[in-house]
């Protein structure tokens, strides 16, 4: 097991180096020189010179890359946002918790609904419920999430006044946020009305963002259950005369959930992409709407730092999923 983890961690190194190289060269490929790209269009000659000095941009490119690695990884200096003039790193600390909360809520929505749906569809294989679930899940994949978000918001917030339409929290509430994870903050302080309020703000964005994972998880669960159902050990269990419920739970679902768990890792990337669109619609102050604004403001330091950070998160989530998968399923370690 340890060997597997170590191997997996070692595999991470080339990927991290690759990602940093990709972003490093991306910035250099942007219109204008890197200093100008990072300074925005306000760059005066004097400023460009100072910037080149600071980040070693007049040195050979290989040396520049190592300087970039050092300032990013060691000094955690991602530069300063062109729009807000604040440190990119301190903005990430502010925005990232919002996106994590949203992504987790979306994933919970998708898992809690998707697994039972997929399971029942497989159990009713070929029948109406199965067909409806399949078509429904295809439809779920076919709707652009920003379109779904706009429609949901219009109906549930504007038309029927059931849920809030913007932001993370009721602005008239006077609460402190020690961690910036609002759900966590509310639980720590035992402030249940705030918790309720924060959850209400999460519902619509989470449904919109969770629509595609929901469809995918439903389909994967269904396919996995269909696969497992005919395995020898399931037949054996049935033949032994175990009650159907026990077989369903112990033999079918447990094994069928293995592929589903890897999906969760792969879906993280989709959630982070989708957050850009969802957060824009719901004016949700997370990484997504922040990066979207950065595109408009040509805020290259934010784009550079933000995308790098999200890529790292994505890579690490997949690592954790892989490792936990290997723990659950010993066969994988030796493949």
């Amino acid at each position: 097991m340890l060997r597997y983890i170590v191997r997996r961690l070692l595999l991470l190194i080339p990927i991290l180096i690759g990602v940093s190289l990709l972003i490093f060269f991306w910035i250099r490929a942007l219109p204008g020189s890197p200093a100008e790209a990072l300074l925005g269009e306000r760059a005066t000659p004097a400023l460009v010179q100072a910037y080149r000095q600071k980040y070693g941009l007049n040195k050979p490119i290989v040396q520049q890359y190592f300087t970039y690695l050092k300032t990013t990884a060691v000094d955690r200096d991602l530069g300063v946002s062109v729009a807000s003039h604040r440190q990119v790193w301190s903005e990430i600390r502010l925005k990232f918790p919002a996106t994590i909360e949203l992504a987790v809520a979306a994933m919970i929505f998708a898992v809690v609904l998707g697994i039972p749906l997929g399971f029942f569809a497989a159990k009713h294989h070929g029948r109406l419920f199965d067909q409806l679930t399949l078509v429904g899940s295809l439809l779920g994949i076919s709707i652009p999430i920003f379109f779904l978000a706009i429609i949901l918001k219009y109906l549930f917030a504007v038309r029927w006044h059931l849920l809030p339409s913007v932001g993370r929290i009721d602005v008239t509430a006077n609460v402190k946020h020690p961690t910036n994870f609002y759900v966590l903050d509310a639980i720590i302080t035992g402030d249940w009305s705030t918790l309720w309020d924060v959850l209400k703000h999460l519902v619509l964005p989470a449904i919109a963002l969770g629509s595609i994972p929901l469809a995918v998880i439903t389909r994967i669960t269904r396919a996995a259950v269909l696969d497992v159902q005919n395995e020898d050990y399931v037949r054996t269990a049935r033949a032994k005369g175990l009650p159907p419920l026990t077989v369903d739970r112990r033999h079918i679902l447990r094994n069928a959930l293995l592929p589903v768990s890897t999906i969760i890792g792969l879906q993280t990337g989709l959630l982070l992409s989708g957050a850009v669109l969802t957060e824009t619609v719901f004016a949700f102050p997370g990484m997504g709407s922040w990066l979207r604004d950065a595109i408009f403001n040509r805020d290259y330091p934010v784009l550079q730092g933000g995308i790098l950070f999200l890529a790292l998160v994505f890579v690490f989530v997949n690592l954790i999923v892989d490792i936990s998968y290997a723990i659950i399923n010993p066969r994988i370690r030796y493949s």
Binding site: I15, V19, L22, W26, L30, S273, L303, I307, L310, A311
Partner: peptide
């Protein structure tokens, strides 16, 4: 394949946004 892994490490839409930012 490691290069492909690197490309997959950046969430798709963000990757596309990055390319559009580069090309206009």
């Amino acid at each position: 394949m490691r290069c492909m892994d690197v490309m997959l490490a950046i969430p798709g839409l963000l990757f596309a946004i990055g390319i559009v930012a580069m090309l206009g």
